[in-house]
């Protein structure tokens, strides 16, 4: 357990370092293209540092806001609060804040930077479909992520990747619309800038699969098996989580509007965004979870 915590802290450092280097490189190239000297590099590194700080200190709030999660009181959700409190006693950590996400698909995630600053969020669908034992299994899994500091890596990845996705989309769109305008109007003065934006867009397009790979490396599938096992150690009842996973698997066709590729790895199970389809092709690229049947099998063997 202590090795995992140390490994996760190391990963966090590498991720932040990598983001600074990556953005710095992009800034450097930009600076060369615009012939503005070191300003591109300095600006990009500054941006990367600000991004890293933000994702470390406010990552949990950003992730929670992006899923439209709402904090709930013990009076509103007595059962959920009782379970979270009980299992955090078992895990020996402070009680995390409790959130509910307005989604029909049953799913859950944990976020934060350490056990003292952590949150657990579950969807309305989860609360509706799970009985107490199953809910305990799910919360046990999430608290295992909290104890191991998986939430730190996961949250940093979510916010950094989210920022990169946002920036790349911005460039792709401005190239797309700018390109149309340029061609129609015959305005040639913007040609240089357009080419640069096009180049950045292309680079980021190539980067996207690499980013997906990075996520997979940072948040390996092994983590999910481990959290399943540790969660079962907390509840001392593996069939609870197994049964919950079975229900989640059965409901995997329900789409989740609030999930995206940047946060996919945080969820209890890979969320799907496409109606009727288990997992879309684009999601496969960012596939971060082991197959649910395999997880159930391992839980049943415990």
């Amino acid at each position: 357990m202590y090795e995992q915590i140390a490994a996760n802290k190391r990963k966090t450092f590498l991720l932040i370092f990598g983001a600074i280097v990556l953005l710095g490189a992009v800034g450097y190239v930009l600076g060369l293209l615009y012939a503005s000297g070191p300003y591109g590099l300095v600006g990009a590194v500054a941006l990367a540092i600000v991004l890293s700080f933000t994702s470390y200190f406010a990552g949990d709030r950003i992730v929670l806001a992006s899923t439209r999660a709402k904090q709930v009181t013990p009076q509103e959700q007595p059962r959920l609060h009782n379970i979270v409190e009980g299992l955090s006693i078992a895990a020996g950590i402070p009680k995390p804040r409790v959130y509910v996400i307005p989604e029909r698909a049953p799913n859950a995630f944990a976020t934060g930077r350490n056990p003292e600053h952590s949150s657990v969020a579950v969807t309305e669908g989860l609360l509706e479909t799970m009985n107490r034992v199953e809910l305990e299994g799910v919360i046990g899994h999430e608290l295992a992520h909290v104890v191991d500091r998986d939430i730190l890596v996961g949250t940093i990845v979510a916010t950094l990747v989210g920022a990169i996705v946002l920036i790349s989309e911005f460039f792709m769109r401005s190239w797309w619309w700018g390109g149309f305008r340029g061609r129609r109007g015959g305005d040639r003065s913007g040609g240089g800038a357009e080419a640069i934006i096009f180049a950045i867009g292309l680079v980021l397009l190539v980067l996207a699969p690499i980013v997906g790979q990075i996520i997979r490396l940072a948040v390996s599938r092994q983590r999910e098996f481990l959290a399943d096992a540790q969660g079962a150690m907390l509840t001392r009842y593996p069939p609870g989580l197994a049964s919950a996973l079975r229900k989640i698997g059965a409901a995997s066709a329900i789409p989740m509007r609030s999930a995206n590729n940047a946060t996919a790895h945080l969820w209890l199970n890979q969320p799907s965004r496409i109606e009727g389809e288990g997992t879309g092709t684009l999601e496969k690229l960012f596939s971060t979870h082991p197959p649910i049947a395999e997880r159930i099998r391992r839980l049943e063997e415990m």
Binding site: R79, G86, A90
Partner: peptide, 20 residues
């Protein structure tokens, strides 16, 4: 019903605290 939920929650918290 509210008391029952409180009691169930407290019982399992006792169990978890004892486990820890």
């Amino acid at each position: 019903l509210a008391l029952q939920e409180e009691l169930t929650g407290t019982e399992s918290k006792i169990a978890y605290a004892r486990q820890f």
